[in-house]
Amino acid sequence: MIKLKNIDKYYDSRFQRTFILKGVDLEVKQGEFVTIMGPSGAGKSTLLNIIGLLDEPSAGEYYFWDEPAHQIKEKQKVQYHRSHIGFIFQAFHLIDELNVYENIETPLVYRSVKGKERKALVADLLDRFNMVAKKDLFPNQLSGGQQQLVAIARAIIGNPKLLLADEPTGNLHSEQGEMIMKLLKKLNEEGMTIIQVTHNENYAGYGTRIVKLIDGVIEEDFQV
């Protein structure tokens, strides 16, 4: 599904080139639950952003379902974001001005899903996440765990093939974190490919494979 070949990411300052990622080769198959681990500054988030088409590699090739993603145009990226990739973040990044229902609905709006269908889909998801009662609340009225739940709901409502999670539990206490991880595992079991970044060894255990990144280089890559 995802194939990274010799990916570099660097910034040029006046006198030297700073590598964030260096020669990263990574292949992720459909249905995997990959955990990227590593110390701060190892380039985990950058790698995730490149996979999610939010950032571009400085060198190397990236194939998303055999399509050369390092060459695709802006318009196609939008298409990928709409139908193939879902994101969740450490800081949730819900839209403060929109309520729970509207936040979840947003991706569907961009995919021009009709109003009735949207309603049905959102209602379905709210039901599944036990958040029907909270649908009219705004993000700042929710706890962190609840916000992340909404963020996950928003990320998967478009039924993406790939879910990218950048430290999804980083801002949550352990109980809430556990809940989120269980949810991700369940989604994976239902067939969704997930790539997550985390510091937490315990949460890495929920995945099927661990990739350890140190100073922009893959040090270890093993199945759990």
Partner: peptide, 16 residues
Amino acid sequence: SKFMAINQVLGSSKNT
């Protein structure tokens, strides 16, 4: 800006 950045992630077109 947050709204816009997130919109991009959620698949909004450039014109949004």
